[in-house]
Design a protein around this nucleic acid. Structure first.
Lengths: 353, 353
DNA sequence: TTGTAAGCGTTATCAG
DNA sequence: CTGATAACGCTTACAA
């Protein structure tokens, strides 16, 4: 009647009922390998003894699966969750993972310190999903070696991924802005590694630490450049994915003599900040300054910001499916994108020199 | 040189080196129980063979701890994360958990269906934290029985919790509004169980399904009532924690003949919606309509909404500590609160009847 | 400082 | 339909 002082296990249950542990296990996992009657009996006894089903640890050791999918994010949780893109992705991910009976573990990408790595190693995950960056992060490599299934968010020759064609996304924006007559662009790019200086001019040949090859940031900028090779493309860094950070970067870009006619933010949440900065200065988006973002998060639609839409939730959902189902046939998925033209872009104004 | 076709384990390593498995284990877990030299040797061999440290599953089974702290949330992740309160709490939580070398598992509270419960059972968690509601949720009881440490967010006679005094919070608001002359209040309360009707009048005796005893919602309303027993207090339900939902509920409350002079939203994110609804109708917050929220999330400071501040991040951090450290001495923690008066509250206007 | 032996709770395999 | 047996990979007494 009192609480069991010792752990109730399958063995306990089996002994009490005079059946084998296997049968108890089957009662939970393979109901059809068992007479209905016996099963009921076992379940009843379980309730009586306070046994609440197979232990997660035992099962994980024996079966080699924990049912947990790790979601890798940089820096602090608060930042990860401040970015609507990440939130929507995470929602889709967790939805798909739950459909497979699993759950999502929040995993902070460790620095080079051993402590963080250790903690990562302890995490019993079957798969690891990351939404961007981290492609060659040492932690990811370690986990891969360990047999953890890795699902990325960028196109690559091998491995599993769900991605969009970022170069194409950049081209869509370049074409649009070029047609509108823009020839002087500032790109706002997140620089979470703080590797870059405040500003530099993009050229496809010169490799800048802020726009490393293989990153989606570089692909987008490069696509942009492809469609407007005669334009001046400056890149300004934002410290991380947040509206406030975009505002600051835009302030830096706008408070100069030779103000650009258009600002392209590599992420919508930054574009929101650009919008704020423009309004602060009395610049009407779409007339005095064109603003473009990427991803199409809900808020930018509200403000009328032109953007390249991608199905973020679907991306997360598919990533979750790849993570939880090794037999899912398509392992490299490119999702469609689409330019959504809104009021924040318009013909390039003649700058009164 | 190629990838190992079979799992490399401690035993493998031990055999190759001619030492015992124990020693290998110690090399990872108790470096001081081992000569520096031997340890180096073992680690080197590990790298050579591609062994990446003790397996999480084995360790969890043997030691009985997984290092994982579950965070329970209702409904969909997207909703949980749409509420800034939850986000800040989660940030603090994950920070503390990481400090203890653990990580946070996102756990969706299952309905009554068996499938969801099953999935919850499979999760190898040492502790479960929930930010509100769920006090007597069957899933929580099940886990508790299973030996999972439960950390709640509401005061109770026993168990571990980190909370504020919600009745007192309500009183702070009641006193403030009463002094300002308000006698006709509408409370906006989330009703995630959809148990209530659209509106009812609060009385401490009559028990309404929307404001069940023991919930923080009821405590706040009751505290409010204590300080303004001569006022009319109507309660209107919002479907869940979101700005939009607050806006809809406020619209319902404001578009009537006998409009209240003040609206109290039981959560700041709802208060934001009330603010929107007021502006939609040309009502100046603080003059035509007083608005109060709870929690003091960043956005309400920006808009000048009066609220009851609580240290949300600290709450999450402490919850994480209780969850990960069974020896932490204080197991029931009440955090301080404070009324923050801003421009959204002012003297009750004379209603032109 | 190192090794031995036992077992954590489960499930796969194979035999009855 | 049911059961015996043998791992899964690791840690923890305790012994040397």
């Amino acid at each position: 009647m009192g609480k069991p002082l010792t752990q109730v296990t399958m063995k306990t249950l089996a002994e009490q009922l005079g059946v084998s542990a296997t049968t108890v296990s089957n009662a939970y996992n393979k109901p059809d390998r068992l007479s209905e009657e016996l099963r009921e009996q076992i379940l009843a006894k379980a309730k009586e003894l306070g046994y609440c089903g197979p232990s997660a640890a035992g099962r994980a050791l024996r079966s080699g699966k924990s049912g947990i999918c790790g979601f890798l994010f940089g820096e602090r949780v608060s930042r990860a969750v401040a970015d609507p893109y990440a939130v929507v992705f995470l929602s889709g991910l967790s939805e798909a993972v739950e459909e497979h009976g699993g759950s999502v573990l929040l995993v902070r990408a460790p620095g080079e310190d051993e402590a963080g790595m250790q903690s990562l190693q302890r995490a019993p995950i079957d798969a690891l999903v990351f939404s961007s960056g981290f492609v060659n992060h040492p932690a990811v490599e370690l986990l891969r070696q360990r047999g953890v299934r890795i699902v990325g968010s960028q196109r690559a020759a091998d491995g599993d991924w769900v991605a969009i064609n970022d170069t194409k996304a950049g081209r869509l924006v370049g074409k649009h802005l070029h047609r509108l007559g823009h020839r002087d662009i500032v790109v706002i790019s997140p620089d979470y590694q703080h590797a870059g200086g405040p500003e530099f001019e993009y050229s496809p040949d010169h490799q800048h630490p802020m726009l490393r090859p293989g990153t989606y940031e570089r692909d987008r900028v490069h696509g942009l450049w492809e469609k407007m090779p005669d334009a001046r493309i400056r890149v300004v860094s934002a410290s991380h994915y947040s509206r406030e950070s975009g505002r600051k970067a835009a302030a830096y870009a706008l408070d100069v003599q030779d103000r650009p006619t258009a600002v392209v933010a590599l992420s919508d949440v930054l574009a929101l900040g650009v919008w704020d900065a423009a309004r602060d200065r009395g610049l009407a988006p779409g007339r005095d300054l064109s603003i473009v973002g990427f991803d199409d998060i809900p808020d930018v639609g509200f403000l009328g910001i032109t953007t390249v839409r991608q199905p973020i939730g679907e991306k997360g959902r598919l990533a979750g499916r790849l993570a939880m189902d090794p037999d899912y046939p398509e392992r490299q998925i490119t999702l469609p994108i689409e330019l959504v033209v809104r009021s924040s872009t318009g013909p390039a104004p003649r700058m009164n020199k």
